[in-house]
């Protein structure tokens, strides 16, 4: 027989990455399940995906533009500027929340079936991406409304979206692993996303941050992603080179760290979940 598998204490690492490939169909089907369940009650699911960014955008535009009188970037309408930032931010927040909770929500699977556990948090990214796609259609509608022609670099949205998902995945994996051991970590996630919303340039342009503080400010990896989005969608700002490099480095470092933490705690998941 060609197939031979040896299970031994502390000898599962080599097998793991091979298994990840073998279980790729499970990854796809879990992604599909999460998306299907999310939009099963179609009206509520899609309505929610449409309403949430729209309402937040309206609130931010009123507070930051009309009341606080913050400047917009170039001649782009303030609402459009907020919405272009809203897109990657929502992606990040949804992805972070979903990955962090994913293992606990799927505890019945984890306790009963073997598969590389990292599939579960990774598969939840699907919902975030679909939500994002719906919002993106909305953005298209808004650009028609404001009669704002997007620049050529709108195509850069694709890699930027990927970057936003990556930025979320690393910390998501860490939180996901911690959530299994310490169940009250789940309370921390909404705090992170809420806090992050205000320190990231979602409701305002990052050009209002004083130049001497810019580097420090850009250490928040979402700054690069958001400014990149504004550059790609509105096309009236400079390409945020430095911020994007910081984002990319942050994303990779956190992802590697996340995988490490996740792998280290993974072997005990089935015992404590």
């Amino acid at each position: 027989m060609s197939y031979e598998l040896i299970i031994e204490a502390g000898r599962t690492e080599r097998q793991y990455w091979k298994d990840l490939w073998r279980y790729r169909e499970l990854f796809l089907i879990l992604t599909w399940r999460d998306v299907a369940v999310q939009y099963k009650q179609t009206v509520v699911g899609i309505l929610w995906a449409v309403l949430r960014p729209l309402l937040t955008m309206a609130a931010f535009t009123i507070v930051f533009s009309k009341i606080a009188k913050l400047p917009a970037e170039g001649e782009a309408p303030y609402a459009l500027m907020v919405f272009a930032a809203m897109l990657p931010w929502q992606l990040f927040a949804t992805a972070l929340g979903a990955t962090a909770n994913s293992l606990v929500l799927n505890s019945n699977l984890v306790a009963k079936i073997y598969f590389p556990r990292i599939i579960v948090p990774a598969a939840t990214l699907g919902v975030a991406v679909v939500d994002f796609a719906i919002s993106f259609v909305l953005l298209g509608g808004m650009m028609c409304w404001y009669q704002y022609l997007p620049p050529v670099q709108i195509l850069a949205v694709v890699p930027l979206t990927l970057l936003a998902a990556l930025v979320a995945l690393g910390p998501g994996l860490i939180l996901c692993a911690l959530n299994v051991t310490y169940r009250d970590f789940r309370i921390i996630v909404p705090f992170i996303t809420q806090f992050g919303l205000y320190i990231s340039p979602v409701g305002f342009s990052s050009s209002i941050v004083p130049a001497e503080w810019r580097v420090l400010y850009e250490c928040n990896p979402m700054v690069g992603v958001i400014d990149g989005f504004r550059w790609a969608v509105l096309g009236n700002t400079a390409f945020p080179e430095r911020a994007l490099i910081i984002s990319l480095v942050c994303a990779v470092v956190f992802l590697l760290l996340g995988i490490r933490v996740f792998r280290r705690t993974e072997r005990t998941f089935a015992d404590i979940i």
Partner: peptide
């Protein structure tokens, strides 16, 4: 392979499937 052993070894020479409980992973909405 749901959990790993503390000591000893297992050698499997075939594809293994376990039904630890029927309906594992069934989703009520689907």
């Amino acid at each position: 392979r749901i959990t790993i052993p503390t000591s000893g070894r297992i050698c499997l020479r075939g594809r293994i499937s376990s039904l630890l409980e029927v309906g594992t992973g069934f989703h009520p909405e689907l």
